[in-house]
Design a protein around this nucleic acid. Structure first.
Length: 291
DNA sequence: AGCTCTTCCTGAAAGC
DNA sequence: TGCTTTCAGGAAGAGC
């Protein structure tokens, strides 16, 4: 599942080859994951890719409009979210066509940029420079850029820390894997409330998050089932997972069996010995033992 | 405000 | 063996 490190890996790969390239043609397959297909068909052919950026889990390609069409329009951004199974790959036109490929962009260097997405949970849309700020305003801060003080402010809510981390309006780019890995590292149970974390726990979580994300970027992301980078190669961080997907296996710190529970509608893996559950019930009246 | 449930989609895995 | 059912999961929306 592409999260921040996976998307960053794809973006770095695309950044190495796309800036300066002009899109010479566009072909669409299924379009139910594209916000406005005709807009893409009108704007992409002839446009030159100027910049590749990452906004949380979104890939952004900044496009200079073609000289002929829309000469007075501001720059467009093609925003791509990989969803669960999205892949954005640069390849030669004659490379084998993978099933579920729904967008082909022909480039002026005789290569193709292809978007493949088995489940089509991904998203693709075009926004112009005027629309971009309102799009970005809906996203929280970048986890690797947010200062500690702002990190603490974002946590000061009566929501479970797992839900807070998954909410893209709080932090942009975190998903199930890196949330669980960071919580394991910081020894914090996924059901703890953000507002109830003490200063040393907040400090530990901030450090854990930064460490996990930067290590994962260094290892080019986690490949569990479908993730590959812009060249089609898998990442290596799945070998460093300490909690995610390890139900029943021993904790790397204390050998207790890793457990799986559902929090915020997601599988959550944690060590029941290292990551202690919140005391009592966080809502409703606490039950008393009969006495 | 924040939690749970539902929806979208497909392939893998479990069930029979 | 082979067909059928269940499930996972990012994000948004509904309902409580």
């Amino acid at each position: 599942m592409p999260e921040l490190p996976e998307v960053e890996t794809v973006v770095r790969g695309l950044r190495a080859v796309l800036p300066g390239r002009t899109i010479t043609g566009l072909r669409l397959g299924k379009t139910d994951f594209i916000a406005d297909p005709p807009r893409l068909e009108a704007a992409l052919p002839g446009a030159t890719i100027q910049e590749v950026r990452r906004f949380g889990k979104f890939i952004g390609l900044r496009l200079a409009a073609s000289h002929r069409a829309n000469g007075n329009r501001s720059a467009n951004w093609l925003l791509v979210h990989l969803g669960m199974t999205g892949q954005f790959i640069v390849c030669r036109p004659d490379s084998p066509l993978r099933p579920h490929t729904h967008v082909w962009l022909a480039l002026d260097d005789a290569r193709e940029l292809r978007y493949t997405d088995i489940r089509r949970f991904g998203k693709m849309r075009l926004v112009d420079a005027v629309e971009l700020p309102s799009f970005l305003a809906r996203l929280g801060s970048e986890p690797l850029e947010v200062p500690f003080e702002d990190f603490c402010t974002a946590l000061a809510r009566r929501a479970m820390i797992k839900a807070l981390f998954l909410d893209q309006h709080v932090f942009r780019g975190l998903g199930n894997i890196y949330t669980d890995e960071s919580l394991w590292r910081a020894r914090i149970h996924p059901r703890r409330l953000g507002a109830r974390l003490n200063p040393s726990e907040r400090r530990a979580l901030y450090a854990a998050l930064r460490r996990v994300l930067s290590d994962a970027i260094r290892l080019r992301g986690s490949s569990i089932s479908d993730f590959v980078d812009s060249a089609g190669s898998p990442g290596d961080y799945q070998r460093r997972h300490r909690a995610y997907g390890r139900e029943g296996e021993p904790c790397f710190r204390c050998r207790a069996k890793i457990r799986r529970i559902v929090v915020a509608g997601r599988s959550s893996y944690f060590c029941p010995r290292c990551q202690l559950a919140p005391k009592g019930r966080s809502r409703r009246t606490p039950r008393r033992h009969s006495g």
